[in-house]
Design a protein around this nucleic acid. Sequence first.
DNA 1: CCTTCGATGCGCACACTGTACGCAGGAGGG
DNA 2: CCCTCCTGCGTACAGTGTGCGCATCGAAGG
Lengths: 243, 243
Amino acid sequence: MSRTKDTNPIPSVWTREQRRTDQPALSRDAIVREAIAMLDADGIEALSMRKLGARLNAGATSLYRHVATKDELMELAVDEVAAEIHVPPAGGPDWRAAVTEAAGSFRTTALRHPWLTLVLGQAGLAYLGPNYMNFSERLAALFTAAGFPEPNRAIDAVFSYVIGMSTTEAAWLTTVARSGESESEFVARLLPAARQASAGYDHLAAAEPETSAQAGDPAKLRDDKFAYGLEVVLDGLALRLPK
Amino acid sequence: MSRTKDTNPIPSVWTREQRRTDQPALSRDAIVREAIAMLDADGIEALSMRKLGARLNAGATSLYRHVATKDELMELAVDEVAAEIHVPPAGGPDWRAAVTEAAGSFRTTALRHPWLTLVLGQAGLAYLGPNYMNFSERLAALFTAAGFPEPNRAIDAVFSYVIGMSTTEAAWLTTVARSGESESEFVARLLPAARQASAGYDHLAAAEPETSAQAGDPAKLRDDKFAYGLEVVLDGLALRLPK
DNA sequence: CCTTCGATGCGCACACTGTACGCAGGAGGG
DNA sequence: CCCTCCTGCGTACAGTGTGCGCATCGAAGG
């Protein structure tokens, strides 16, 4: 039984390579950080436990010592990124400017990490992470100080809008990125198809020149669109502010 | 070479089962219909080409004769479901009621098919499907008739809000469904964790009784929240309507 | 010093995924 | 009759998340 021939190279302390301590040891933080880098670079479907492990000079299953499951890893990534959202301190003189700042910060964060909204629309309770909690707390403080008797309803109104717009924009930017072209190029190439698709639809065709008139800078157009909708929501909220 | 013994049962017209024409033949429509049924029943990660094929008495790869790829199938499913969204005809006396109806219809559709918003946030160009085009066209007609000089901006404002809120609600309902409990039960069981998570956050803790006070019917609470935010947006838009 | 122990990383394996490819069989047209 | 086209399928490949048990380590305890 024990005399089966072992043709494999004899494992030895000398052949076995040294444990490398130069690389930062595998840790939850390092894993999350690298996962975010991969998500940002190559999109959500490019992240696999094996590739992530390889990037950290580790095997795929080693990651599971620090993270229970891939879903949990995604929630950790979401919360990590939530720390980038800036909410001004409560009590300033201009609540609208403060809310605009917070909304804009959420949007740019969501566009910098286009997988964020995807995970938010999927993951159970990413809302309970510390950074996300912090974000919520600061928002609550802001709206309370502004004088809203039911701050949660106001927050939900504003940020449902912000999330919806950011989701749509992120999806758009993702497909643009996949095309390998710049946004303007992609728009130009898409135009004929869009025109043809909206042929026969009176109002879509009518609205089209309005859209493609200032087709100069698509990014600026998106900025304006976002700002417009946000102003709409804030105006509606201002009406409900007891004076 | 040809004399190798064949131990398999001899294939014959008699042993081979009849082609069943009782089952509706594999067709793109049938595939999409069945896919939607599976998505509704078991969620987005439960849909695989193999299982879908099995449900249709077909092999997995047979589906590819009618559908180029799984992503394309998802886009078809989205467009199919988009037909359920009801937009009142343009030109009625009360544009707010009409928009409220359309927004509500979008929301109930999104909650009936909780995978919808997920795919929307991912797929980018599902928008070119005929039903989705129809939906957009009717919206454009509605807002134009209401008198908005830039109907697209108004539509984007309203439906970014609607999409954002629906996405959040759908995600919530999905995790509730996964728990196997009713929404009230799940809320009750989640409460301690939420309370603990918001300990130390003054404003979140302060807002909590406000939320859990009428914890009677969570579904009604969500309805109210949605209606509130929608009113906010519509008020903001009304200010921009040239009179 | 040696021994023990808990923590960490890893190789293997399993069940599953989307889908490319080539073949078999039936439908219809010459 | 043959020939061509269309449909379905079996097989196969390259991947996926992750459970399990083993090897290795640094530290702790005797």
